[in-house]
């Protein structure tokens, strides 16, 4: 690269091409950024633009685009009930993630950061689900939730406890087959998949919390809970903001595990925005309408992301990791 070569060369180049030093630096930056930009443009930006274009057509996905319908796809989407159900289910997953999944991850992070026996082992075990593919996670949890106690682990356990006289009986449940429970079951699998990631973020954050502060608090007579509440948590702010951000955006896009486990069913009980997009585009052969759903998901993600960055401050979430 010319940037590495000596000062005289640079000057020569400058005169020859009339580039100022600043412009030359810019050129270098552009050159370095180009590969990443080409990649992102081809596989992210370009498809997004195409989606917007498709969303204006009534199109099955096969053959040429001929049937221009303007904003009719969006009108159908916003006036129909199905999409709003999907939005509601996505919102539920988002709320549950923030209210249950993140506190659980934080709790476990605090535990495995203590000097407890086997903490290294548990740290790895807790992180493992995140490394597994979504299909494997979905399949594992299908087997856990099978209604027939002969095949379903959870119901087998419930049945076994049911045979004991002492413990209050919990009846075996239909789980994924029950429209009232299906979304919660899928959320359990999602939690299992993601709590390890958030735990890891918190552990990384905890390593930046100076031990001296905690020790000082203890010397001043604070008990364990007070130390965590007043010292550790405030100092973990960056990590928490990062994990909330990832969790929010992750919830909007959640697809794989739910699709494998329930395909949006039964009767649409686990339909999220992404499964609805997929069903419309690829099962109902309405790629135009499906693209409209994709565009709406994109807009929602953008709004969420910008608002969140504005509210909590950009430097915070970048500094989090």
């Amino acid at each position: 690269m010319s940037a590495i070569s000596g000062h005289e060369d640079t000057v020569g180049l400058q005169r020859k091409r009339g580039l100022s030093r600043r412009n030359q630096d810019r050129l270098t930056i552009v050159l370095f950024l180009l590969p990443a930009f080409i990649f992102i443009f081809t596989f992210q930006i370009y498809p997004m633009i195409r989606s917007v274009y498709y969303s204006l057509y009534e199109w099955s996905g096969f053959g040429p685009l001929t049937d221009y319908v303007g904003l009719a796809n969006f009108e159908r989407l916003f006036t129909g009930r199905e999409f709003w159900d999907a939005v509601w289910h996505t919102a539920l997953i988002m709320i549950w993630s923030l209210a249950l999944q993140l506190p659980l991850a934080l709790l476990l992070a605090l535990l495995v950061e203590r000097d407890l026996p086997g903490r290294g082992f548990f740290r790895s075990i807790f992180f493992m689900p995140y490394v597994l593919s979504e299909v494997i996670i979905g399949q594992v949890w299908i087997k856990m939730f099978k209604p027939d106690p002969q095949f379903g682990f959870i119901n087998a356990v419930l049945e076994w406890f049911g045979n004991l006289p002492v413990i209050p009986q919990i009846e075996t449940q239909a789980w994924l087959a029950d429209p009232k429970q299906a979304l919660a079951c899928a959320f359990v699998a999602l939690t299992w998949q993601f709590f390890g990631l958030h735990m890891l973020l918190y552990i990384a954050g905890l390593q930046n919390v100076p031990r001296e502060l905690e020790e000082a608090a203890r010397i001043d007579g604070a008990n364990e809970l007070q130390t965590i509440w007043n010292i550790t948590l405030p100092l973990l702010g960056n990590a928490i903001r990062t994990s909330v951000y990832l969790s929010l955006l992750g919830s909007v896009q959640v697809f794989g595990v739910i699709w494998v486990m329930a395909r949006g069913g039964p009767i649409g009980a686990t339909e999220t925005m992404s499964t609805y997009m997929y069903r419309s585009a690829f099962l109902k052969f309405s790629l135009g309408y499906g693209s409209a759903v994709a565009v709406v998901i994109l807009v929602i993600s953008l709004i969420l992301s910008t608002v969140y960055q504005r509210v909590v401050g950009q430097h915070d979430y970048i500094g989090g990791i």
């Binding site: 027939d148 087959a177 029950d178 039964p266």
Partner: peptide, 12 residues
């Protein structure tokens, strides 16, 4: 039908 048939597959 069997318990949980709403979530069962044809294989089941």
């Amino acid at each position: 039908f069997q318990d949980g048939y709403l979530g069962a597959t044809y294989g089941d």
